[in-house]
Amino acid sequence: MDFNFDLNSLWFILIGVLLTGYAILDGFDLGVGSLHLFMKGDLNRRILINSIGPVWDGNEVWLVTGGGALFAAFPHVYATVFSGFYTAFMILLFVLIFRAVAIEFRSKQPMQWWRTAWDTAFSVSSILIALLMGIAIGNIITGIPVGADKEFTGTFLAMINPFTLLVGITTVSLFMMHGSIYLIMKTEGEVQAIVKKWTNNAVIFFVICYVSTTMATLIYFPEMVQPFKAHPWLFLLAVLNMLAVANIPREIYHGREFKAFLSSCASIAALLSLFAIGLYPNLVKSTTESAYNLTIYNAASSQQTLNIMMIIALIGVPFVLTYTVSIYWIFRGKVKIDAMSY
């Protein structure tokens, strides 16, 4: 379907931007968490946690705000997906809670068992969050059973199938790659040498997952590719994505860590753009009957609400970007452990 330049489409883009911001920012700290148990030694693990220490909480706010924006702009999607995926969302909440408190609690006691327990909670919950989010994206690609009354009619277990699991694992691999590159920027010496090895493996892991997911999507869900057939120039995005990934090892080889990280950010943005283009103008596809799809039109708030929220976003987003950039600037450079550290 062709792009309509209207409020509903602008909100589709804006929520896409919020979730992309989330994937890029929380993506690296989930990645650091996923890799955490591979690092040995208490001091080294502290360096990992403190590399994300000042920023992980702000990164999670992108998810909270993305959820709020979805609630305000497309309440039917928020209601259908959150109630339909009840059990999945509850598990997601539990791991989000455990991750947050693991980061806060770990450093508060010196006992070995205490630290190992919270290290495990931190790492396992990071992996599960990435996996669950990937499975959710997988379900948006495959579609879910939604009836005429916009209500979900499926079950939790039906949401997990080989394809959605593949998307879940791809998400984990993407965040591991992204997180390891972030760690190269934030560490030095021995720890950095270990992390560099991780990055090589993570890039390979991600490329394998990415190629598999792309093939599976082309074979089983060709409708995702329809917009690219209609507008061949969109294929440039897929090329850009591959170039960005290929650029990562090159930048690391030349010691340009920040550029490697930017490449990784670009590849996440390109991936989510490909997903969004394939989805538009649907938000949730119904496997029951395509007339029951939740689209940016039949699931939206009133035009006036979209308008008011757009004004709020235009006022708020410049502030948000200013804080984000300032905080990352203040905490730039390699991690140093001090009395206030985790």
Partner: peptide, 16 residues
């Protein structure tokens, strides 16, 4: 959603 969702979104953008 129009009313309550808007307030929650504003909370995210302006406060959190």
């Amino acid at each position: 959603g129009d009313v309550f969702g808007s307030a929650l979104a504003a909370e995210g953008i302006f406060a959190f």
